[in-house]
Nucleic acid binder design. Structure first.
Length: 843
RNA sequence: GCGAGAGUGGCGGAAUUGGUAGACGCACUGGACUUAGGAUCCAGCGGCUUACGCCUUGGGGGUUCAAAUCCCCCCUCUCGUACCA
């Protein structure tokens, strides 16, 4: 090599991450290597990380999330896929308004400035995003299509308006969807949520409850984490049962019966009372003539005034009051007293339950407390439990159940339902826990709802030609947090799209989860102006092949997006065959510090920017992937990141110390003929086994930590031969060097590119294909065999790869160590596991 | 209570189909180089034992020639969820 001649080029250049990273980020940008093109002739791969809220700065959680996505994107590109890997901003939402109030800036200015900061932070990490497809949901170019979808969903009856008690966050000054209330508190600010009766816009997600549930198996078998599937299933909460109508003994005006929902119609003959929620709509009618009215009313008031959390706590004692009204058992016609109970929820089922103390723990407790009769109605195989001490819910044979006595209770469910249907007093019924999605928000920084209130025409949808209904930006936010829109005449004053008379615009805005329910599809044609999507692009790119994000969206965003996908498909907007938006989901673990979540109040924040400045982007990327498998939480370790930095410096030094021997070869280019010595063959084999391991770990299993460990091993082996290169030969060594750089590229792309260039390559690693191993190169001429006696390892021996089972057996039985261990014993059996071990069973 | 997951050295973690437990890294110890070292290199690093060996994957049983891995019982932790009739 001519380099050898000049002392100057022999100088060892130090590893300066900052400069290298800036250089390659510029090159990649200029060459547009991350741009995705629609190309039906190439298999596509759509990898997506949950887009961030532009809160100000990226945090370690973001970094970890996007590192995982970027390695997958870069690896898939090298494996020949046409990869879509976009990024954008979930840009509407409350923090912008809060910041506006606090810092006297406009929410839009705050948001756009954060986006610009965070965008450059992401760019500084070298993520391979197709920035041409960047979106921000707060731009009219984006939300105009959401307004379009709103109108279409409204037209189809999937959006409606109703008055109902709503979750109200007093601190955020807005309502929340059920999914946004976590243990009775606001998901964002942790304030206790209150109930408020309001008229709101709802998305009829319940219309898809069944499909949202029945399609979950499409995501099973590891495609989505089991716990996310379980959470979705529980949230939807499907119960199959029966609605049973109990006629009132004395009908009142407007009602002659009360209907309950039960999953246990087989226990119908065990009913000894009925319990209504205090909020049940018939209660006022039923109690108005009661001699006990005062006491009953006091009870209702007491329950209603209880804090929601306290009322639903499991430790709350069951409490009730009889209302001196009776219903008749639908089959036996027996008189059954009606009670009000604090444990009955008005919002589930019919707000009324039949009381079967023998078959239900709650009813049992209630009956014991108020001394109500308990009738055994099911006999399990183990015999009838004592009805006074024990409530049971096991299946068995029905007893004391009229014509059903003797029937297995599982059959009885069906049989009793049929009988009730025959009598016109019941029907099969399915209940869901899932409620419709309240999407109205009484805040400013959100997408306007495209509806108009007209005095003559009533509620009128906007004319699609008027879209977008633009959120006015020349508005001051109010210091009290209330939306300024209802007072902003320039916004609300409009004309009725139907009759043209002056009318008032809806001033609530949409829940921001509306925007995130379809953003992934917008990326497929982000610059399309006339329509939200381009059918050809949707057809090609959807669904997202790999979605990556935090588990905190297990229900919220992931449920809404699944719903939206199904709804837009049925509107003819998405491809007919599209069933699920995200075919694979990876929920990455949190980045902790000192065992707990990073937070300002704890003061345990690790600032990514500081780490990048100190160690470089490649080191930060490497460490995030090496510290733990992606699903697991990991604790940030300052010495751990130094280890990662040390490894990259070691790779750099490996090059600088061997540079005069490094030829511009490609990964795995050395052939068997190039490996002329034992050392060379061994290194070449290590090179191939490394690629095999890294391909599996990175391409299939997403176990980046072990992939990196494998690369480290190869580098360690290269260190082992670097002072003896004559024995290995430059070709074999250079091939190994090329392999290290190629497989390291998705993880630490900048240093890999720089060294790739330094080793004399003229084209970028972005053009390189993932190396394919030669199975021949994996075959060793020798192998290590473990010798065991009675399952205990006694010796390991190295034998020629060609050794037969018989030869191994002989070797084992004659091995001195083995002979010593079987001395005085009889050899009963010898087990030979090819290529692995020989176990001598002796006793 | 129900649902999901996890328990392996001082620490993060590895062991993909039952086949050498502890790969790789961190921390630590000793040595080399050095004016110096928080740089780098070499060696060591689960416990007990002078050694031969013995013990060791939360605990206890079992299956097997062989178990971190499969089966049964129990314990602990994390997350989710809960009067859902």
């Amino acid at each position: 090599m001519p380099l050898k001649e000049t002392g100057f080029s022999m100088q060892k250049t130090p590893y300066v991450p900052g400069a290298i990273e800036e250089k390659w980020q510029r090159v990649w940008k200029e060459q547009g290597v991350c741009r995705a093109q629609l190309d039906p002739s190439t298999p596509k791969y759509y990898v997506l990380e949950m887009f961030p809220y532009p809160s100000g700065n990226i945090h370690m959680g973001h970094v970890r999330n996007y590192c995982i996505g970027d390695v997958i994107a870069r690896t898939k590109r090298m494996q020949g896929y046409n990869v879509l890997h976009p990024m954008g901003w979930d840009a509407f939402g409350l923090p912008a308004e809060n910041a506006a109030i606090k810092h006297h800036v406009h929410p839009a200015a705050w948001t756009y400035s954060n986006i610009s900061t965070m965008r450059s932070q992401l760019m500084r990490l070298g993520y391979s995003y197709d920035w041409d497809r960047e979106i921000a949901t707060c731009r009219p170019e984006y939300y105009r299509f959401e307004q379009e979808f709103f109108l279409k969903l409204y037209e189809k009856g999937l959006i409606y308006r109703k008055k109902a008690p709503q979750n109200w966050c007093p601190s955020c000054m807005t309502v929340l969807a059920n999914e946004q209330v976590i243990e009775g508190k606001c998901w964002r600010c942790d304030s206790t949520v209150e109930q408020k009766e309001l008229t709101q816009w709802f998305v009829k997600i319940t219309a898809y409850a069944d499909e949202l549930l029945s399609d979950l198996p499409l995501l099973a078998n590891g495609a989505w984490p089991d716990r996310v599937l379980a959470m979705q299933k529980n949230w939807i909460g499907k119960s199959i049962g029966c609605q049973v109508t109990f006629p009132l003994e004395k009908p009142v005006e407007g009602a002659d019966s009360i209907t309950v929902f039960t999953t246990r119609p087989d226990t119908l003959f065990g009913v000894t009372f009925m319990t209504l929620a205090p909020e049940h709509p018939l209660v006022p009618l039923l109690i108005k003539d009661s001699p006990n009215f005062e006491a009953i009313n006091a009870f209702i008031t007491k329950i209603r005034n209880m804090d929601r959390l306290d009322r639903q706590s499991e430790t709350l004692e069951k409490e009730g009051i009889p209302i001196d009204v009776f219903v008749l058992h639908p089959i036996t016609k027996k008189r059954i007293p009606i009670w009000l109970g604090n444990f009955v929820l008005a919002s589930y089922g019919t707000g009324a339950v039949m009381g079967v103390p023998y078959g239900d723990q709650r009813d049992f407790e209630f009956a014991k407390k108020y001394d109500l009769p308990i009738i055994p109605i099911i006999c399990p195989e183990t015999g009838i439990p004592d009805p006074q001490t024990c409530a049971m819910s096991d299946p068995g044979t029905m007893i004391n159940s009229g014509q059903f006595t003797g029937m297995p209770s599982e059959e009885g469910k069906e049989a009793v339902t049929r009988e009730l249907e025959r009598l016109g007093l019941g029907k099969k019924s399915v209940q869901y826990r899932l409620r419709d999605w309240n999407i109205s928000r009484q805040r400013y920084w959100g997408a306007p709802i495209p509806m108009v209130y007209c005095e003559s025409c009533g509620l009128v949808p906007e004319d699609p030609a008027h879209l977008p209904i633009v959120l006015p930006l020349d508005i001051q936010v109010r210091p009290d947090g209330k939306s300024p829109l209802p007072e902003e005449e320039s916004f609300y004053a409009t004309r009725c799209p139907r009759c043209g008379k002056p009318a008032r615009r809806e001033t609530d805005t949409m829940d921001t989860f509306m925007e995130s329910s379809w953003y992934f599809a917008r990326y497929t044609a982000a610059r399309e102006e006339k329509a939200a999507f381009n059918p050809e692009a949707l057809e090609y790119w959807l669904p997202v092949d790999q979605y990556i994000g935090g588990v905190e969206h297990a229900i919220l965003h992931l449920l809404y997006a699944r719903f939206f996908t199904k709804a837009l498909r049925d509107l003819g907007i998405y491809p007919k065959t599209l069933r699920e938006p995200f075919s694979h989901l990876l929920t990455q673990g949190m980045v902790l510090k000192e065992g707990s979540k990073m937070s300002k109040s704890k003061g345990n924040i690790v600032n990514p920017q500081e780490m990048i400045d100190r160690f470089g982007a490649d080191t930060v990327r490497l460490f995030c992937l090496f510290a733990a498998p992606p699903e697991r939480d990991f604790d940030w370790s300052d010495s751990g990141i130094e280890g990662a930095s040390r490894f990259l410096a070691r790779v750099w030094r490996l090059y600088t110390e061997t540079q005069e021997h490094c030829l511009p070869l490609r990964a795995l280019q050395a052939t068997a003929a190039d490996a002329k010595t034992k050392e060379a063959t061994a290194l070449r084999r290590k090179e191939h086994t490394t690629v095999q391991k890294v391909s599996e770990d990175m391409g299939d299993r997403f176990q980046f930590n072990t992939a990196i460990a494998a690369i480290m091993e190869l580098v360690n082996d290269m260190y082992g031969v670097k002072d003896n290169l004559a024995a290995v030969g430059d070709t074999v060594f250079s091939s190994a060097m090329a392999t290290v750089l190629t497989v390291l590229f998705p993880i630490a792309p900048h240093i890999a590119e720089e060294l790739w260039e330094k080793t004399g390559h003229t084209s970028s690693l972005t053009k390189e294909r993932w190396p394919e191993i030669d199975p021949q190169a994996l075959v060793a001429e020798e192998k290590t065999i473990v010798l065991q006696v009675n399952g205990k390892v006694r010796q390991t021996i190295t034998v020629p790869a060609s050794s037969t089972e018989e030869e191994l057996k002989t070797l084992a039985l004659n091995n001195p160590t083995i002979v010593r261990h079987i001395q005085g014993k009889t050899v009963r059996k010898v087990i030979v596991v090819p290529d692995k071990l020989v176990n001598v069973v002796a006793g």
